[in-house]
């Protein structure tokens, strides 16, 4: 009963927030509505028992992706009202794509009648292990059976990092002038820095 109420609350809020994401005039409001919809999606994920996905939604999508969206919106400084003017022109195309996706969705729902699927390998050896939380199960698979893909995913992150730096980072000419090298400072000894001289009377110090 409570679950059903919670489900409808999250679902209604999710759809409302999603609609407002598209409809709001101000792109910053759109991003904020998107964040609301992420939170509600996370609630739905908890309801179906996918706690890890819920956590990822909050941490990665709300915490990082949405912030990035905000930055991009602020960075581009596009006149969105002008952009929206093209909406009606592209409307038929959008509807066509939406219809194709809808047809796909109906097909997917049709498959629901086919009965329960056995997930994992054909002999069922990778079927969900009972008695453990799904985070443990994800971990047990990800870091043993799929470790090869996990490491490759690490490489993707590395390439993303290198790519972002290559494309956006600009070496500034002045960057190195005030650059502090702590190692160099620590290595410096008094005898390198100071020198004792005894100049004769009437003569200057020769450095």
């Amino acid at each position: 009963m409570i679950q059903a109420i919670a489900f409808y609350m999250f679902a209604v809020l999710l759809i409302a927030a999603g609609t407002l994401t598209i409809m709001s005039r101000n792109p910053v409001h759109s991003v904020l509505w998107l964040i609301v919809s992420f939170f509600n999606a996370a609630g739905l994920m908890v309801l179906v028992g996918a706690e890890f996905i819920a956590m990822l939604l909050v941490i990665v999508y709300v915490g990082a992706v949405a912030v990035l969206f905000l930055f991009v919106v602020m960075m581009l400084n596009i006149d969105f009202a002008e952009l929206r003017a093209g909406f009606m022109k592209n409307f038929p195309l959008g509807i066509a794509i939406a219809l194709v996706l809808l047809a796909e969705l109906i097909l997917g729902i049709g498959a629901y009648g086919a009965g329960v699927l056995e997930l994992g390998t054909p002999d069922g050896s990778a079927a969900p292990l009972l008695g453990r939380s799904n985070i443990e199960n994800i971990g047990a698979l990800l870091y043993s059976d799929y470790l090869f893909l996990f490491e490759a995913a690490g490489l993707i992150l590395l390439v993303a990092m290198v790519g972002a730096i290559v494309l956006t980072h600009r070496e500034r000419a002045t960057a190195h002038r005030g650059h502090q090298d702590i190692g160099k400072q620590n290595r410096r000894r008094p005898e390198d820095a100071t020198v004792n001289t005894r100049p004769e009377v009437g003569k200057g110090v020769q450095l």
């Binding site: 941490i59 990665v60 915490g63 990082a64 992706v65 985070i135 443990e136 971990g139 990800l142 993303a160």
Partner: peptide, 17 residues
């Protein structure tokens, strides 16, 4: 930040399993 955030997210299932 996103990249290191994802890295941290991967640590969680690893730690419990």
């Amino acid at each position: 930040f996103i990249i290191f955030d994802l890295e941290a997210a991967f640590l969680f299932p690893w730690a419990v399993s």
